[in-house]
Design a protein around this nucleic acid. Structure first.
Length: 918
RNA sequence: GCGGAUAUGGUGUAAUUGGUAGCCACGACAGACUUAGGAUCUGUUGCCGAGAGGCGUGGGGGUUCGAGUCCCUUUAUCCGCACCA
């Protein structure tokens, strides 16, 4: 009987469904383990062979943990809101809910075929009202809280109101949009709307007029992580800066905690580094500069207060709110022209032309508080409005950008740190002795910085300050297919719905594009207002809203009273292992941490961090194949001969190429154009060229998992994806080579059954050699799984079979079957049944290795390190210990190696000296 | 510009973490069985060399009895951030 993977896989998938094998529940008698995959956005294209890579790895780990006795939570769901479904809707009029539903069905079908151990009863969909109720709920909680910097904790807005009523802003240390100074009397004198405007300055979910990334093509604003190189990540459309009133989340309030929290996470160093950069903490000072003829001082942020004597001018961003006030009549025309020109330049242009110096003099002067000199104030787009205060003190001698600006406008350059030649370039290094710097002269830079921090505070010119690059997240999108805001308006003031009014369901509309007035699509909805007629918010929430707490919902997906029950949450606690792509480093993985910390502050969850350990699987790229058409003919020339002709390279479907050899008949059938193609072969074959490219339809290099499952089975697919290389490494998919893994499973099968289907199992006692092989494999495989080194564990299985030869002994095969079950669950279930077990192999116990069988052949070998003798323990199972002993000989020549000293022993293996013991 | 990662046969990779470089596979070559092979099995396969032998982990240097592994330097590729004051 041959290994009939198709029948086996169908049978066991059905069995798992029927028996609810993968259903989990809270069980206080067993330790828990939570393994999570980043849930997919169900796109219309379905899964390609790269998508399941992480799912397979996490499934292996889940199954392994379960066999080890853990109660494993391993859920799956769909990130179902999103732009592609909406754009498809705009083009075709099909409701996004319909296409999403269809795509999910397709995804589920593909996932099921691969044999995952998901508990599907816990499935969540972010677009489901019973799910997004809790997204809206969390938003309302953020709306109702502010961040107390002193207690490092979110607190109810009522407590803030009480504080304002009692003492105004005095003594308030809150995360805020801008610094406010109010007395209790001023607060009391405000009407409701005025008070609300003040509160918006503190709420963790708030509305503000800010510069946003506006994408005209998509008709929506985008968050910073959704924009790359001035283009939208989705679609690659140009993005421009615009001032708009938007909802934001005060993510920046948690910057320091998110930075500190990284220390406690088992994430890769590179990922932590990306988040550190994104948070971008920098220590410096806030300094106020007096402006000639103005009452209000100009506030700047600097990390180099030591260079203040070298400040020869100031620069503010073109968007700076005081630009107009600082512009003198004489300069007005020029400044306005500059601002207009800046606005016209897209974000992309601004970024690609960073070397181009531009700017304009405002006509105003400030006074350097230390040197007392008058210095001109410029506006330039090299100063960003969003960072710090949008204004800088320029030190051309020690900042390359200021230097370039000063050179361009002929401004003075005063060196204040020894070390460089300011005629040639700025000297940016933070080391050297201070010169030309009044009280600082003669000090080392580091001491000067320290002294200046004190001086600035002593002279009441400003204070020490930590700045973060991390911006608040823009939370509204002018789109239809997202969560509606549980917000309505009265006199342009936002009011929250109460929790019992949730979910606020997305209303049906027929046309999904923006209105002619440029309003979001929800403006088309009928009766999109409260019963009293107050209009609801027209924007919807962004994609990251729904994915920010889904891991919590999986713990308790059917709870209608709470996002997650407290007791349930204190059992599952947090995700122990999270597997997903690194592309979410600055998006989802930041927002989730923020969201979770916020819920932690409110006492809804018991862990600060959502994901304890995180593994980033690499991207699977495509491996494209090419044929070479002789120009002007329908003749195709094989790779090795193509240089003899003038050829044109054409992508060919990788599914009709095997081991780079083209199936010429299939090629003729592939496209009408090629029906009567002729071939110039080499050695009777047509060899294709190849290249590594992104996996995409247009390159004809998409390999579908269904195709692999159909032809080789899910178990082969699972093992081959792992065998391809280290999990975290990006690598191209190459179906060549899958035969090796498939052959392995067939060989395993043949240890149980012969060709005629006769059972080969025996109860014979295993030999010592066989036991050694078994226990070595147990040790290797379990260590490898713990280290996510799945490629080497697959290799270990192959070595194991090679060594076992045709051993059909139950005592060897039974533990081996359990060992392999996480990788190839279907065939192992079948073999497990063959071994006479009635229960699923998922309920078996993972075998442990016995040192006894390993120590037998292990030996200690001496190593001398820095002249000291140490012994290392080694398991070299390929060697007979007796033979090793025999190889220990003394060689006179070895004395030469150690310069005269007499060696005690020289260890020689296969005639080579591998060690000399002194 | 700053930061991070990687570099090993024709290909994917492995190496007890400083101890026989190339495990395990793919591919290729040869053979067996076969009407047939995109089935199965056996053998060979880093490079040069008929052989003995020599050379070999991107390049150069260093530490060490011993380096793919550690240090310095350099090159290439990939990724992240990027007027962040």
């Amino acid at each position: 009987m041959e290994y009939n993977f198709k029948a086996i896989e169908e049978r066991w998938q059905q069995y798992w469904r029927d028996q609810k094998t993968y259903r989990v529940a809270v069980d206080n008698t067993r330790p828990k383990f939570y393994v999570l995959d980043m849930f997919p956005y169900p796109s219309g294209a379905g899964l390609h062979v790269g998508h399941p890579l992480g799912y397979i790895a996490s499934d292996i780990y889940s199954r392994y943990k379960r066999l080890k006795g853990f109660n494993v939570l391993h859920p799956m769901g769909y990130d179902a809101f999103g732009l592609p479904a909406e754009q498809y809707a705009i083009q075709t009029g099909q409701h996004p809910a319909v296409t999403t539903e269809k795509n999910i069905a397709r995804y589920r079908e593909q996932l099921d075929k691969i044999g995952f151990s998901f508990d599907w009863e816990r499935e969540v969909r972010t677009s489901d009202p019973s799910y997004y109720k809790w997204t809206q709920w969390a938003f309302l909680q953020m709306f109702d809280h502010w961040y107390d910097q002193q207690q490092q904790c979110a607190r109810p807005i009522e407590e803030l109101k009480a504080h304002l009523a009692a003492q105004g802003t005095a003594g308030l240390q809150a995360a805020e949009t801008q610094e406010l100074h109010l007395t209790a009397e001023q607060w009391a004198a405000m009407n409701e709307q005025e008070q609300e405007r003040v509160l918006q300055n503190y709420r963790l979910a708030f509305r503000a007029d800010t510069m946003v990334n506006w994408c005209p093509k998509l008709g929506t604003v985008l968050a910073n992580d959704e924009v790359r190189d001035g283009l939208s990540v989705r679609g690659g459309h140009p993005v421009e800066q615009r001032r708009m009133k938007q909802w934001l989340l005060r993510v920046s309030a948690y910057a320091q905690r998110m930075l500190d929290g990284l220390e406690r996470l088992e994430w890769s160093d590179s990922l932590k580094e990306i988040q550190r950069n994104w948070i971008g903490r920098s220590e410096g000072a806030q300094v106020f500069f007096e402006v000639v003829g103005a009452t209000e001082k100009l506030e700047i942020f600097t990390t180099r207060p030591d260079t203040i004597y070298g400040v020869t001018f100031m620069v503010i961003a073109p968007e700076h709110e005081r630009l107009e006030e600082l512009t003198t009549e004489a300069q007005r025309a020029e400044v306005e022209a500059y601002v207009a020109a800046t606005k016209k330049r897209s974000e992309r242009e601004r970024m690609t032309e960073t070397k181009r110096v531009s700017g304009v003099f405002t006509g105003s002067y400030a006074i350097n508080p230390f040197s007392g000199r008058q210095i001109p104030i410029y506006a330039s787009d090299y100063v960003l409005s969003g960072y710090g205060t949008g204004a800088i003190m320029a030190v051309p001698a020690h900042d390359s950008r200021d230097w370039a600006f000063a050179r361009h406008f002929g401004l003075e350059i005063i060196p204040v740190v020894e070390g460089g030649d300011v005629e040639q370039a700025s000297y940016d290094a933070k080391e050297g002795r201070m010169i030309n710097s009044g009280i600082l002269t003669g000090l080392d830079v580091k001491d000067a910085i320290r002294l200046m921090f004190k001086e600035v505070e002593a002279r009441k010119l400003g204070k020490r300050l930590v700045n973060y690059r991390l911006r608040d997240a823009i939370f509204s999108r002018q789109r239809y297919w997202g969560e509606p805001f549980p917000i309505y308006y009265k006199n342009d003031t936002a009011y929250p719905l109460s929790a019992d009014q949730l979910p606020l369901e997305l209303p049906p509309i027929a046309n999904f594009g923006p209105t002619e007035q440029g309003e979001p699509p929800l403006a088309r909805a009928e009766k999109w207002c409260t019963e009293a007629g107050e209009p609801f918010e027209l924007s919807t929430m962004p994609g990251f809203a729904g994915s920010s707490a889904y891991y919590l919902r999986y713990m308790d997906p059917h709870n209608e009273e709470a996002l997650v029950d407290r007791d349930v949450n204190s059992y599952w606690r947090q995700v122990d292992l999270y597997v997903g792509g690194i592309e979410h480093a600055t998006g989802h993985l930041m927002y989730s941490r923020f969201w979770n910390m916020f819920l932690f502050d409110l006492g809804y969850v018991c862990e600060q961090e959502p994901f304890r350990k995180l593994v980033n699987q690499g991207m699977i790229q495509g491996r494209s194949n090419f044929v070479y058409r002789v120009v002007g003919t329908n003749k195709f020339v094989s790779l090795g001969l193509k240089d003899q002709y003038e050829t044109q390279e054409i992508h060919v479907d990788v599914n009709i190429v095997k081991n780079d050899i083209l199936d010429t008949e299939a090629f003729k059938r592939w496209m009408p154009d090629f029906a009567n193609a002729e071939f110039i072969l080499e050695d009777g074959k047509y060899i294709c060229g190849w290249a590594i490219e992104k996996m995409s339809k247009s390159m004809f290099n998409v390999v579908n998992p269904d195709y692999i499952v159909e032809n080789y089975g899910a178990d082969t697919l699972r093992m081959y994806e792992m065998f391809l290389g280290p999990l975290e490494q990006s690598k191209p998919w190459d179906t060549n080579g899958i035969d090796g893994v498939h052959k392995f499973l067939k060989r395993l099968w043949r240890l149980f059954y012969d060709r005629d289907g006769k059972l080969l199992l025996t109860d014979e006692a295993p030999t010592e050699q066989e036991l050694r092989t078994l226990h070595k494999t147990i040790k290797k495989v379990s260590e490898d799984i713990e280290n996510f080194s799945f490629n080497t564990s697959v290799a270990a299985f192959m070595i194991c079979l090679n060594e076992l030869g045709d051993c059909s002994k139950r005592a060897i095969l039974e533990p081996l079957t359990i060992l392999l079950a996480p990788f190839a669950p279907h065939i192992c279930e079948e073999l497990w049944a063959t071994l006479g077990h009635e229960e699923s192999i998922c309920n078996a116990a993972y075998p442990t290795f016995d040192e006894k069988h390993l120590t037998l052949s292990s030996f200690e070998y001496p190593v001398s390190i820095n002249g000291k003798l140490r012994f290392k323990h080694a398991y070299d199972l390929s060697m007979d210990p007796a033979a090793i002993q025999a190889d220990v000989v003394t060689l006179p020549e070895a004395q030469k190696w150690i310069e005269g000293k007499t060696p005690k022993k020289v260890i020689v293996v296969k005639g080579k000296i591998i060690n000399i013991v002194i």
